[in-house]
Design a protein around this nucleic acid. Sequence first.
DNA 1: CTACCATGTAACCGCACGGTGTCAATCACG
DNA 2: CGTGATTGACACCGTGCGGTTACATGGTAG
Lengths: 102, 102
Amino acid sequence: MSVRSIKDVAAAVRGRRHDLGISQVELARRAGVSRKWISEFEAGKSTAEFGLVLRVLDALALSLELRDASSTQDGPSDRGAVDLDLLLNRFRASDAAEAGDE
Amino acid sequence: MSVRSIKDVAAAVRGRRHDLGISQVELARRAGVSRKWISEFEAGKSTAEFGLVLRVLDALALSLELRDASSTQDGPSDRGAVDLDLLLNRFRASDAAEAGDE
DNA sequence: CTACCATGTAACCGCACGGTGTCAATCACG
DNA sequence: CGTGATTGACACCGTGCGGTTACATGGTAG
């Protein structure tokens, strides 16, 4: 499942936690964070530290995969070469205005 | 590629950025973060905000996938049911001591 | 040699992250 | 009914994140 915003991770974490039938307290203890953190994170707090998120995912046996956004599955022909130029073009025009979060 | 620590993401980002031949200033501008942040993040700062990391990955056309840590590839038979009990066992014994990062 | 760019790093600062502690609401028990 | 567990929300606080600015270094042209 693709992670578009932190809410995706949050939902997954909460779901997984429910599947495991463990409480926030238990997860917090396992991951080494505070219960407040778990609570806020599961609510979709995008400012959560990456390291802590990783710890929680680890505690739930969830893992993050890093991949090319363009390649749907595997890179068959010439691994990453096409979309590079494609990206470079988008760098000509500039301006950032992404803010789907919170 | 599996993300074990933030350094994995950091390395990927830096690599991708080099592939694209863009500077930290450019990436920072595209992602809407400061150059200092890029610099520190690429150095492996694990306290980076998840949201910002997501922004940078997006700017580089990299994406994060969330998946089961146990399922190596696809989950064919009964989706997530085996490892749940397996995980539950690990919750009996407690104590958290994961700290591969910095 | 002198620019210029890219990058690391320092100092400074506002602000909010994350931890601790607490309370109320909710639900499931017996 | 009362009791306990779970969770959201609050106040409080110290620390450090992230932004800005500035400087030093190393590489690369010219």
